[in-house]
Design a protein around this nucleic acid. Structure first.
Lengths: 194, 194
DNA sequence: CGATTACGTTAGTCATCGTTAACTGCGATC
DNA sequence: GATCGCAGTTAACGATGACTAACGTAATCG
């Protein structure tokens, strides 16, 4: 269900394994709340060995946030463009984002919370990608909700991100039902945006 | 507009002044990303002087999260109970929460992100209060949306919190219009929850 | 008027953190 | 089969962080 590249049993490369473990830890304790030794221990090696794979702790955060932002944008753009009409494009974006959040709760959490811990240049890059992703949504909302202003569409997009990204803290129903519920809630909200 | 006790020009007590400054810093850099000296500097005193007012840095976070949780719960419960019918109760909760988030963006952000940095006993207390607040919403949603299950209502409540709490990162329209938009989005979402 | 209390200050302590250095084993390559 | 480079180890270093100690000052109060 859903086409994510989420928690696989045997991660492809060591780098990816480290990034996955670090994401989990950053999500739970915050960037500064996690030590280099904690990350190492989570993948069975100890502390400084991480520097064989990353230039710094900052670089780990940078790499994970840039790659997630890039994936959201490029995949989102593609799916929206492939849809046959505006209303289907919006529904497709909702489905895509929902599944992504369900498949990558740690990454979503880190992206939401730890943008401020990025180095200046990485932050610039992530923000640029996020802006582009938001514009994909603004386009889809503008086309699907007649008469809405661009500013309201942008605000609505951010609000719906907040709604869908609440997924990691929302484990009261199984994920199939949760996906369906979030889909309805998001489209219901956007429909009401006028 | 809105009856919050938000950013006043001259904070009542020194303690409150410190908590407000700390909330701002925690929201921006994360709990562990802020030093005791930073907080002191933000209120014009230097570092260790804070220990005349708080037992520890942990205690500052604990106090701010407990008080915000308490206020949300007690005020929310009261307003929901005072409404004349279920649909008005839900609308009132949405209005209240929206205005609270608009008036206290830093506190809302800290509550969302830094629960994991609390000391065990404080975290227990905050979680208990949050649970009670959620139950107020679950009651209102269950009464206003016929046929919805309790679990779906709870999930929907969390999702709507995510939507409304996105406020701090949502400054594309002025706050009057944003409040109105968020109100529509939230009720639109809940209406679609079935 | 003298003592206490409230609220600051600066200097120091001790733990911890990110990072580097120096060294080691091991599998592939020429 | 010697060599090279990848991926790991432990030890150390400098910086920084939370917190304590010792001290100062001004207002309050008995």
């Amino acid at each position: 269900m859903s086409a994510g590249s989420a928690a696989q049993a045997v991660p492809a490369t060591r780098r990816e394994q480290i990034l996955a473990a670090a994401a989990e830890l950053f999500a739970a304790h915050g960037f500064h709340g996690v030590g280099i030794d904690d990350i190492g221990a989570a993948v069975g090696i100890s502390g400084p060995a991480l520097y064989r794979h990353f230039r710094s702790k900052d670089a780990m955060l940078g790499e994970m946030l840039i790659s997630i932002s890039r994936e959201l944008f490029s995949e989102g753009k593609e799916r929206a463009a492939a849809a046959e009409d505006p209303s289907k494009a919006l529904a497709e974006l909702v489905t895509f984002h929902t599944n992504f959040a369900l498949d990558n709760p740690a990454l979503i959490t880190v992206q939401e919370r730890n943008l401020g811990n990025l180095r200046e240049d990485d932050r610039k890059q992530v923000r640029a990608l996020q802006r582009q992703y938001v514009e994909v949504w603004v386009g889809a909302i503008s086309a699907a909700v007649p008469g809405i202003t661009e500013e309201r569409a942008r605000s609505a997009a951010h609000a719906v991100f907040g709604l869908l990204n609440s997924t990691p803290h929302n484990r009261y129903v199984d994920s199939t039902e949760l996906a369906e519920l979030l889909h309805r809630l998001a489209l219901g909200a956007l429909h009401a945006a006028r």
